[in-house]
Design a binder for these strands. Sequence first.
DNA 1: ACTAAACCGTGAAGCGGTAGACGGGTCAAG
DNA 2: CTTGACCCGTCTACCGCTTCACGGTTTAGT
Lengths: 183, 183
Amino acid sequence: MYRISQLAKRFGLSRSTLLYYDQEGLLSPSERSEAGYRLYSEGDLDRLAAIASFRKAGLSIDEIRAILAAPEKGERSVLQRRLAAIGEEIRALKAQQSLLARMLRVQSGESLPESMDKETWVAMLRAAGMDDRAMETWHAEFERRAPQAHHAFLLSLGIGAEEVLTIRRLSESAWAGAEGRVP
Amino acid sequence: MYRISQLAKRFGLSRSTLLYYDQEGLLSPSERSEAGYRLYSEGDLDRLAAIASFRKAGLSIDEIRAILAAPEKGERSVLQRRLAAIGEEIRALKAQQSLLARMLRVQSGESLPESMDKETWVAMLRAAGMDDRAMETWHAEFERRAPQAHHAFLLSLGIGAEEVLTIRRLSESAWAGAEGRVP
DNA sequence: ACTAAACCGTGAAGCGGTAGACGGGTCAAG
DNA sequence: CTTGACCCGTCTACCGCTTCACGGTTTAGT
């Protein structure tokens, strides 16, 4: 049985955060002491571990509550939606970055971009002799062998979530036309 | 003389935002109509243009207020601090991204998607018609255009640090020898 | 037994905006 | 002159906590 500040310290959270989770009905202690102190059990601890890792992934309180209430129901879709949202956020931040760079008239990052973007990537593949059809094949292979990695890779090029889905769908159909599907 | 909703529409902002800017003393209309309506002048419009672009760069209300009060004073340093902060935010989001990717991978069972590795990557490129010489060219382009990203990418395929350096050194020399090539 | 420190509970306000409700003003057509 | 469609100003709540303030409880040390 842990008291609130002990539990907070153990998880690197603040007491206030746990008070807030209780208030929101996300994690209520399973017992109270005579004086009314919150007493957290081992089970509460497990639940908090789950909550903490979902929060680290940026899920909202509501989303976490929904997942914990019915994990089998829509956990995957919630996580995937968050993954897409993160891509958008990163893209927005990169836009801010370049806007600021322009304001500061600092061209430092321009000559050697530290992160890859779509245009540079395509230019590289073309330099290596790939044409449009080869790239299609490549996307289709990527989608077939590692859809998840394909998704993450496209996002890492700064491509927006919608366009990513479009590309993946095109990749699937390109491949479906070529061969029979393996689960 | 614009009224509040006209101005909002012209700038793609919401009425609430302009109300908030007034409340915060960031942009107060230079006049009021008899009925108490806010009336914005051309000067106000210019000021709002500045505010909007700073906001697009992610500056806080306080920071914008400070810059507009004394532009010569600390504008550059504020912008540079924001630029650094954006880097942090992107890093944090990327951490969330990989956490989520791991969660989704674990859930989906290990049947289909595993993270990308060197063999799968090479197989994909071969399927798209790339031969050894094309891959060499591609590495060379990668190294020339974005050395840092090249490094990060090789590591992401699970290639060891030493081998990464070997590949990069080969890429450099390949480029030196192929300088006149047309893509 | 007493005191002080460190803990606990509850309640409220604040951050940077955004979004909505509310009641009242304004302007057209009828 | 009235109806309706908008517009306006003001006020409030929301996100995910954090920080304050107040007063009661537990613990350690004397």
